[in-house]
Structure formats: structure tokens, C-alpha cells
Write a protein that binds this DNA or RNA. Structure first.
Length: 798
DNA sequence: GCGAAAGAGATACCC
DNA sequence: ACGGGTATCTCTTTCGCG
């Protein structure tokens, strides 16, 4: 029978001595099902040296066969490898785990140049080879089989696959009605970071797609029923997708450990007796369900500096901070122990899970599109970095083009020259247009056929086919035939164009429009990642010369554009990589755009127009007033996460005053007022916290930077800090190095704060960065409102 | 031996 | 665990003077 189904996840299991591909899915009636394919076998390739007798190697390989997992076949196949046609041997065996062993043995055989595609997980191999689309619909020829107790799957039906599924994702873009469950845990820990062998899970809050919210609560410090209640709830509701916030790194590992300690089985999957396990890219895998950590997607929003759940929910309009209960993590015990405050903690847990659910509505549609395009199951696609996401798309494409997938090899890092940044014309400029090249690097890669397979090492080849030669660096690329990256990028851009035109068929507020919009975004993200990927030493398709050539062509292109602009009498104020800031003269700009497209062959567009824009002498930093009255601040302290809120607030306000009214006096008065408030201790502590990321393990630091010292104090107090954590610290009164006065913010009393530091090293520098240009000095800012210096200043200087 | 200057290390930004 | 270019902070070492 034929069956249409929506694919959630692909795994495999060994039954007897046979690998079974397991597909978790949903049929058209909404039944949760399992599809079992017994016919797929793991394989890899060997490519041979020239003049090697293939049949002899073939025989040698066959002789390696072991009964435990025999080599079923060794077939000679024609493949492409870095633009060359090669003959390869495809070696097929039975048990996926034995591929690695065979690979090592085959590698040692004389005449074998390399062994390829032996490091691709069996379930991903299946997805690639059948071009399956996770989070997409398929049709498959199946035969129903009884729900055997041996398989222990919590589904409505099981099917045996007769012939592999075929994707239907083009016709059918809407998912079925999916059951989604958001959850969040609160842990009681009085001394430092929570430890599963000591600290109970006091609250687990859940919310599902029907809007149902449930709060599981511990009895005092006994958390057995909380965890058991949560497990039962999952099994009863049977969600397809489970979402959490930081759940891969905290909630799930904690629950697993805690349950182990309590002797509770965290049996939450669709496969009986399975527990969540940490797997590839650090994601937590739950059998038959898609466990998604929304933090992974929040990480990509650069506008949010401290990516706490409440900040992200606030930023995305999911739940405003002002409309929810806020409790700091270190206050949890206090709220739990006080009967009057406990209600608030429960409400806080509810707000957290509502926020988490809200975030899933923001992120899942994009994640699902990314999953469909790259072929990575939804639970992995978020956890995978941009480079790996693109790489899976490339691997998928390679299969279609009959290209062998290169191995991941360790290489030394080799730097190369990047883009141009122009020296800005300092000062305030009126009416400035910002022009951007559209997708500059992807288009360079396409135009000049850049990639590892088109790179020409022997220039004599160019006489025959013709080559593009990169300026400055001289790398050459074959003009024909189109290389791997060119084909992939053209496909991505073509698909995006198609999606964007299809969007027009739907109302802006329709489900279809949203899906297509997320799809075109995902396609763009992947296309834009190609250049960076090519220059990444960890990439399978690494090509330093290619990346170096792309930036060289980029530099040439923008230089030529500047020439054209100047020849038209447009003044160039600034530019960075693919953008130019020029005087806004409509007619000339129109002509400029036309000439750039004609002479350079790249599209350039007006991105925005500043009524007024301000530059200091520094590159990558400016502030502009847009036509609609909004203010853009780029690069300055106001947009940096490692400056205090108060300094950023002051700088932002100054920019508003200066660009809006041009009134320096008002700006000075404002700064003085803030300084006065700081002296009087009227600025709340939250606005004085400096947040800095710990970019390596604490013991690896050679110098005692303030955030490192603050982190060490946290460790001393029993908190765990790890690489990647953001440390929030405050500078307290005292003498000596700044770092010796840096304390974690939650250990500081407001009266200990060194307001002089905040005046001299935060507010004044941030204010002067802008006001300094207008001739205003530190002295002017520090004078008190009444105009005289205080005794404090006198002593502070001494 | 001392203070200033230069260098090193670190972080977060821009595109 | 996608690229290089850039500004700017704090800590540490070196420099220049005498």
C-alpha cells in the first residue's frame, strides 16, 4: 500500500544481525507511526591511484570480509572528485559500526589513494541517499506489520518499507497538526551551582500547543513526584516536539542525573525504556520526539547581549519583562522557603514556560525550513553551527551531482587578506545614502566560478578552457564547467527567488506566507555562509585560495565602484566591504547604480538614507538619523554588550540630542545630571553591571582580567562557571588593580559600588566619544550642576 | 627605581 | 567549531631617564 507521511526523525537499530532504518512520522490521519526499512546497507568508497588494477584491489577488499558484518559487495563506480572524473570502489557491508574498521583496513591496501564517505552516520546516509526531507511530507510503498512487543515503540502503527520514501515537499508545505510541549525546570540550590546528587528539582512547568499549562511542584525538598509527574505527563500528552530554553545544556542533563540519583526512570521517549542522551552537536536526543533547545536560535540574535529567557522573550515581543514575575536564579531558595513568596516563584515558573512556548512559535517555523533544506533532523539543526548546516546541504547536493564528499582533514590555519574598510570623513554629514552590493560574496563566487574544484594550479590549463584570474592574489579558476559551489549557490538563489515570487500568491498574514518567508530566509542564510565556509579550516570543501580570491575580487569591485561614484561627482563618506556612503543626489545615484551594474556586473541598491550621520575618526563606528526619525547606532559603546547599561543609555541619549537638535548644552546638562545621580547612589545596581564572556576555561587565562577575577570569586563561592558563560560583575570601592575590585554582581551591596569608576571609566568615556568631537571636555562634564567642583573631585584627583 | 609608553591579551563589534 | 578588519579596554612588560 501507498502511505503519505510526515517525517519527524530518522534513526536505526540493529535487529538480529540486520540494521533497520527507523523513521518516526505522522500519517495523514494524524497517527504517530514508525516506518522500518530493512533494505538499506552502509557503504563507503575507496578511490584508487592511477594505473592501479581495480579488480585486484577489489579482491583484496573482499578478502577482508568478516562473518560478523560481511562485505556484501565491492562495485566499481564512476564518480566526480574535485572536478575530476575518478573511478571508485563502493564497498558495502551490513553493520554500520563496522564501516570504520573496514575503512582503516582498506586504507592500508596498496593502490588505494583514499577512503571516502566512511564517516557519515548511517541515518544521515539514508536521508541523503533518498533525499528525504525532515519536517516534510513523503509518499512510501509499505506493508503494515503488527506492533510487535519486541520493538517497544509507543506509536499507533508500524510499517515495513517496500521501496524508499519519496519527498512531496514541493506540493505540500504545511505540516500536520503537531503536538508541541514546552518545559522548564527550577532547581533548589542554596550553595552555588546545583548538583544533582544534592539539590532537588522543585518545580517543572509545562505548556502545550493547546494552551494548557501545568506546574509540577515538589513536596518540600522531595522531588520524586515532580519528576514522575513530568514523565507521566509527557507519555500522556505524547508530544512530537519538546522545547526548552538551554535544555540541552541544563534541564535535560540535570533531569537525567537527578532521576538516576533518585532511581526514577526518565522514560520519556516513544521507545520504551529509552532515556534522553546527549548526542551530536551537543543536542539531547529523545527517541521518536524532536527535542529542540530554543537557546540555539536565540544565540543568533546579535541585538540581544545577555541572552536570558526573559530578555529574549521581551525582545521578540513574546512576553514583556514589565508584565512578568522576575526572580534571579540565586533568589530561588529564598522564594521557595518563604511560604508567602512561594506563590511568586510558581508564577515565575509559569511565566518562564509561557515565554519558552512563545519562543517556539517564533523560532520553530525557521528551524523547520532549515531542517527541510539541509536534511538535518529538527533536533540537530539548531544545535549544529552555521558551518555544519551548510555542509549538510553541500553533502546532500554532492550526492545529486555524483560528487564524492571530501573527508574532514586537520589543517593548519592560514590567514589571508579580507575586505576593505574606508577611512571615514569625520564629522556630521547631511543627506547620505548607503548603497549595498546585493549578496556580494555569493555573486562573486558564482561569477568567477570560485571553489576547490575549479581552482587551477597549472596555468597552462587556462589556454584551453579560459580562466578567471583574481586581482592581487593571482589565483585562477576555470571558467567552465560550472563548479560545485557555483551550482549550489545558483540553486540556492534560484530557489529563493521562486519562493519569494510564490509568497505573493498568499496574504501576508497567512500560514503559507509565513512558511515561505522563513524558507527564503533559510535559503539566504545558507547562501551567505558559503564564503565563510570555504575559508574555514574545518570545512570538508575548504579552499583558502578561493576565499582569498573572493575578498580580492570584493576589494576590486568596491574600489571600482568608488571610482564611478567620484566620476559622477558623488562624495564618498565611508564604506565597508560591500557598502558605500555617498551624498544623496537622486539623479546621480540612479546613474551610479546603472553604471555599476553595467560596468561591474553586480547589483547595488540603496539600503537606507540618513538625514544626518556622524562619524568620529574611527572605522566601523557611526550614528545616523534616518528619514523616519529613527536613530541608528553602529559600533559605538551604546551597542556593545560589555559596557554598562548606564553608559550606553547616556551615549544613546546624547546621540539623540546631537543628531536631533544639535544641542550640545542640553547633552552636557544631561551627563552632569547622571553623574550627580551616580554620586548619590541613585542609579540601580543593574545598570552598573558589566557583562563579559568567558571565552576559555578559567585556568587557561594568563592575565587577571576583571571578569576572570570575578569568575574566580564565583567558583570560590561554589558556583560553576564554564567556557562561554557571561560573567556579570561590578567594580567596588578600594585601591589597586581594577580586577581586584571586580565582584560578581549578586555578591555586591549597592553601597560598596565605586561610583567614581562608573563616572570616569564608563559614563564619561561613552559621552566623550560623541561629545569630544564637539570640543567638549571631561572637565565640563564633571563640573557639578551649580558649576563648581565638589570636594569629592578634589580628593579624587589627589 | 620610577612613571610613561608600548605591547600583549581579550572582547565584541561590523560586514 | 563559517571569514577577516577594527576599536578599545586592562594588564604586563619594556623603555628612557638619571
Amino acid at each position: 500500500m501507498k502511505l503519505r507521511f510526515y517525517l519527524l526523525d530518522v534513526t536505526y537499530e540493529i535487529v538480529g544481525r540486520e540494521p533497520h532504518i527507523i523513521m518516526w512520522g505522522i500519517d495523514e490521519e494524524g497517527n504517530r507511526i514508525v516506518l522500518r526499512d530493512r533494505s538499506f546497507r552502509p557503504y563507503f568508497y575507496a578511490i584508487l591511484d592511477e594505473n592501479t588494477n581495480a579488480s585486484e584491489v577489489k579482491h583484496r577488499i573482499q578478502r577482508l570480509s568478516k562473518p560478523r558484518s560481511p562485505i556484501i559487495s565491492v562495485n566499481e563506480v564512476a564518480k566526480n572528485y574535485f572536478g575530476e572524473q575518478v573511478k571508485a570502489l563502493r564497498i558495502t557491508t551490513v553493520i554500520p559500526e563496522t564501516v570504520r574498521e573496514y575503512r582503516e583496513e582498506v586504507k592500508r591496501i596498496q593502490g588505494v589513494r583514499d577512503v571516502l564517505e566512511a564517516d557519515i552516520r548511517f541515518s544521515m546516509r539514508y536521508i541523503i541517499d533518498h533525499q528525504l526531507v525532515p519536517c516534510g511530507w513523503h509518499v512510501v510503498e509499505v506493508e503494515q506489520i503488527p506492533l510487535s512487543p519486541q520493538y517497544k515503540n509507543r506509536v499507533s502503527a508500524e510499517y515495513l518499507v517496500k521501496s524508499p520514501p519519496q519527498p512531496l515537499s514541493v506540493e505540500e508545505i504545511k505540516p500536520p497538526s503537531l503536538r508541541i510541549l514546552a518545559f522548564d525546570i527550577e532547581v533548589y540550590s542554596k550553595q552555588g551551582s546545583p548538583r544533582p546528587d544534592r539539590d532537588p528539582v522543585i518545580i517543572i512547568s509545562v505548556m502545550n500547543d493547546k494552551g494548557e499549562v501545568k506546574i509540577f511542584e515538589a513536596e518540600g525538598y522531595n522531588d520524586r513526584k515532580v519528576i514522575q509527574g513530568f514523565v507521566d505527563y509527557i507519555l500522556e500528552y505524547d508530544p512530537d516536539i519538546i522545547v526548552g530554553y538551554n535544555s540541552n545544556r541544563f534541564d535535560w542533563p540535570y533531569l537525567v542525573e537527578r532521576a538516576k540519583y533518585l532511581g526514577i526512570r526518565l522514560d520519556v521517549g516513544r521507545r520504551k525504556d529509552s532515556t534522553p542522551t546527549t548526542s551530536v552537536y551537543g543536542h539531547v536526543s529523545i527517541a521518536g520526539r524532536l527535542n529542540v533547545d530554543l537557546y540555539d536560535f536565540a544565540e543568533e540574535i546579535h541585538e540581544i547581549k545577555v541572552k536570558s529567557l526573559e530578555n529574549v522573550a521581551d525582545y521578540l515581543g513574546v512576553m514583556k519583562k514589565s508584565e512578568r514575575i522576575l526572580i534571579e536564579w540565586y533568589q530561588i531558595p529564598e522564594y521557595w522557603d518563604d511560604p508567602k513568596k512561594r506563590e511568586l516563584l510558581l508564577k515565575y515558573a509559569e511565566d518562564d514556560v509561557r515565554s519558552t512556548y512563545g519562543l517556539s512559535e517564533k523560532f520553530l517555523p525557521f528551524a523547520m525550513q532549515l531542517s527541510m533544506i539541509t536534511g538535518l533532523p529538527l533536533d540537530q539543526v539548531g544545535a549544529a553551527s552555521v558551518g555544519f548546516r551548510l555542509e549538510w546541504y553541500l553533502m546532500r547536493s554532492a550526492y545529486l551531482y555524483n560528487e564524492l564528499i571530501p573527508n574532514r582533514v586537520e589543517r593548519p590555519y592560514e590567514p589571508y587578506t579580507g575586505a576593505i574598510v574606508l577611512e571615514p570623513k569625520r564629522g556630521v554629514h547631511e543627506n547620505i545614502a548607503v548603497l549595498d552590493f546585493s549578496s556580494m560574496y555569493p555573486n562573486i563566487m558564482i561569477k568567477y566560478n570560485v571553489g576547490p574544484d575549479t581552482l587551477v594550479r597549472d596555468p597552462s590549463i587556462c589556454e584551453q578552457y579560459g580562466c578567471w584570474k583574481a586581482p592581487e592574489v593571482g589565483h585562477r579558476f576555470r571558467k567552465e564547467p560550472p563548479g560545485f559551489f557555483k551550482k549550489v549557490l545558483e540553486t540556492l538563489l534560484k530557489l529563493r527567488k521562486e519562493v519569494r515570487s510564490k509568497m505573493k500568491e498568499y496574504p501576508v498574514d497567512s500560514v503559507e506566507y509565513r512558511i515561505l518567508d522563513e524558507r527564503q530566509r533559510a535559503l539566504k542564510v545558507l547562501a551567505n555562509a558559503a564564503y565563510g565556509y570555504m575559508g574555514w579550516v574545518g570545512a570538508r570543501w575548504y579552499c583558502r585560495e578561493g576565499a582569498e580570491a573572493v575578498t580580492a575580487w570584493g576589494r576590486q569591485t568596491i574600489k571600482k565602484a568608488i571610482e564611478i561614484a567620484r566620476s559622477l561627482g558623488l562624495k564618498v563618506i565611508y564604506g565597508d566591504t560591500d557598502s558605500l556612503f555617498v551624498t544623496y543626489d537622486e539623479a546621480k545615484i540612479k546613474e551610479f547604480i546603472r553604471r555599476v551594474e553595467q560596468e561591474l556586473g553586480f547589483e547595488i541598491k540603496v539600503d537606507k538614507i540618513y538625514r544626518r550621520v556622524f562619524f568620529t575618526e574611527a572605522k566601523k563606528r557611526y550614528a545616523g538619523l534616518l528619514e523616519d526619525g529613527r536613530i541608528d547606532i553602529v559600533g559605538f559603546e551604546a551597542v556593545r554588550g560589555d559596557w554598562t547599561e548606564i553608559a550606553k543609555e547616556v551615549q544613546e541619549r546624547i546621540v539623540e540630542i546631537i543628531l536631533g537638535k544639535g544641542n550640545t548644552k542640553e547633552a552636557i546638562e544631561y551627563v552632569r545630571k547622571v553623574i550627580k545621580e551616580l554620586r548619590e547612589g541613585k542609579i540601580p545596581l543593574e545598570k552598573l553591571i558589566i557583562w563579559k564572556t568567558l571565552s576559555k576555561k578559567i585556568e587557561e587565562y594568563g592575565v587577571d582580567a576583571p571578569h576572570v577575577v570575578a569568575a574566580k570569586r564565583m567558583i570560590e563561592a561554589g558556583y560553576q562557571v564554564s567556557k562561554g558563560d557571561k560573567i556579570g560583575y561590578v567594580i567596588v570601592k578600594g585601591s589597586g588593580k581594577l580586577s581586584s575590585r571586580a565582584y560578581p554582581y549578586f555578591m555586591v551591596k549597592p553601597s560598596d559600588v565605586d561610583f567614581n569608576y562608573y563616572i570616569d571609566h564608563q559614563v564619561i568615556p561613552a559621552a566623550l566619544r560623541i561629545l569630544g568631537y564637539f570640543g567638549i571636555t571631561e572637565k565640563q562634564l564633571k563640573a557639578t550642576v551649580s558649576g563648581q567642583k565638589s570636594l569629592f573631585d578634589f580628593f579624587a584627583k589627589k
